[in-house]
Design a protein around this nucleic acid. Sequence first.
RNA 1: UCCCCGGUAGCUCAGUCGGUAGAGCGGGUGACUGUUAAUCACUAGGUCGGCAGUUCGAGCCUGUCCCGGGGAGCCA
Length: 461
Amino acid sequence: MTARTKLIELLKSEAAQESVLIKGWIRTQRESKDFSFIELNDGSCLANIQIIVDNDVDDYQEIVKLTTGAAISVTGELVESLGKGQKWEVRARAIGVLGVAPDDFPLQKKRHTDEYLRTIAHLRPRSNKYSAIFRMRSKLSFAVHQFFKERNFQWIHTPIITGSDCEGAGEMFSVTTMDLNNIPKKNGAVDYEQDFFGKEASLTVSGQLSVETFCLSLGDVYTFGPTFRSENSNTSRHMSEFWMIEPEMAFADIHDDMKLGQEFVQYLVKYTMEECTEDLELFAKFVDKNLMSTLENIVNNDFIRLSYTDAVDLLLKSNQKFEFPVKWGSDLQSEHERFLTEKHFKQPVIVYDYPKDIKAFYMRINDDEKTVAAMDILVPAIGEIIGGSQREERYDVLRQRITGMGFDEADYWWYLDTRKYGTVPHAGFGLGFERLLMLVSGISNIRDVIPFPRTPKHLEF
RNA sequence: UCCCCGGUAGCUCAGUCGGUAGAGCGGGUGACUGUUAAUCACUAGGUCGGCAGUUCGAGCCUGUCCCGGGGAGCCA
């Protein structure tokens, strides 16, 4: 019995092969007088293989009626193609029908809009563009781990369910086993003591606080997993469920953090260019004509680094008309970030040392006592792809920040403990994996780089 | 959540001044061809997003709701 060969291997074949077995889905069929062409794809790579079916093959009349989308197995001979456009083709000896596709199969031999394909998210990976992005997603996940492994970072599996309501990165989804039609109450308030965990529980919005404890023990660490935010965001770059990568380095400051962020983005872009060439070509050709020059620009140049204060000065002197005024102390608006990265510098920009009042409590206060050692990496078209900071490692300063912002320091006891016992300077950031995929593919809507997007009012599939 | 744009055949769209529905692709049938999103001919296919209103008459005008896209905020 011959084993099934995947097309990615078969198409690389050095020589003709007497007997091969392939399985996949029909992309298109063209019927000739005495034989028929079938283009088959099995998802292992972008390319199809052409199959020649002569009319003396068993059940020929049934085979020529197969339409786009049908699944078949083919045994035959791998031969050099007589036609132009492909090196190899399979001359079929026998074809087995695994699953027919009736004529209402929603994917046609033509370009569909992303909006339509999103309504058939269960079938869109059978299209060229979506199979390409999901192969790239898989390969880049691997590259994330490879990058950190090469640098001796440890992968930490921080919890997805959290009892900590102090992660502070956004609105959280509640996790409960209580009967929502009959919620236990005590003195008018929800009685969480009767819930599964005996306390209020949520899905994580960030693994950072947890992973910091491992940073201050294993040294350099990172998380890579799903993250959940229940903000009512309706944009092309936000989802309720997304994957985030959060490295955290011990004995490191904000400059080490910026360096790691740049190296990480450059590594992943370079990896894409070297390891995903076939899929990348599709994006460069059909999705974003400037993709290759964008990627080369990222790989070949240091990211611009400028402080928030310098960025504000630059924006004020730019003579640009902005809808929102530029003012020291206010956060940069999207239009300001876009100006910096798309118009002024035309490359990725790292803005650092933001006013402390617009940033989170755990970010380290600088000597000027007005700014914190925070940094955002901004890229053209997408905006913020990385947000990070050096963490406040000084016990007393951190305690004051927590209470000063109106939080209860008792909720942060274990976090404060890490500063009480053997504290060290450390820094880290969060990178949105889907935003990175947008960057390397040119795909402009984040819902199109994840298998089944979750956004407000959307939980299909 | 706010602002702007859109919703017409399975898909992508056109539809003039308010007068009763069109194309390409896809499907079906046939022809032709080592073809390449093949080509050619014929053919089927519509509650014009829902509801209400104006009008003799609404795909077109008004109101409202639903859905999609772009932008903004929140952020990765």
